[in-house]
């Protein structure tokens, strides 16, 4: 699950990332943040932090179907059958639309998060 840590914006938290210096002008850390929205940014004047409730929830939403699918013993059985189709098959097929629902949830959460970030950035830049 290397990746899931990544969702929390590893790039933003790892100081070593821009190893060769070069301060990027694109992430100005300006104090005034006129619209902290609902991200509950704790740091005074900091831009939106790397770990926000939205990002954590989105990661969880993506993780649930993955765990469900990798947990093979939970569905490796014939009963209960549905309309003659053994459990093994209809259960996994059911997870297809379910995973889409979880992905939509993650999409909405991330969208909200990115809007907040953008607002914070623009607010700081101007």
């Amino acid at each position: 699950m290397v990746l899931l840590g990544g969702l929390a914006g590893a790039q933003d938290v790892l100081p070593g990332c821009g190893a060769d210096g070069e301060p990027s002008g694109a992430e100005p850390k300006m104090p005034s943040d006129p619209d902290p929205t609902d991200t509950g940014a704790p740091g005074p004047g900091a831009a939106v932090p790397a770990v926000t409730p939205e990002r954590v929830l989105a990661a969880l939403a993506l993780l649930v179907p993955i765990v469900a699918m990798l947990w093979v013993p939970s569905y490796n059985k014939n009963d209960p059958a549905l309309a003659g189709i053994p459990f093994f098959y209809w259960y996994q097929l059911l997870w297809v639309p379910a995973s889409a629902v979880f992905t939509v949830a993650a999409y909405l959460l991330i969208n909200r998060d990115e809007k907040a970030r953008k607002a914070a950035r623009n607010g700081g830049a101007r």
């Binding site: 899931l4 990544g6 993506l62 993780l63 179907p65 993955i66 996994q92 297809v96 995973s99 979880f102």
Partner: peptide, 12 residues
């Protein structure tokens, strides 16, 4: 499961 997991992973 392969195709279910794929889209969730790459979303990241």
């Amino acid at each position: 499961p392969y195709t279910i997991i794929a889209y969730l992973l790459v979303f990241l």
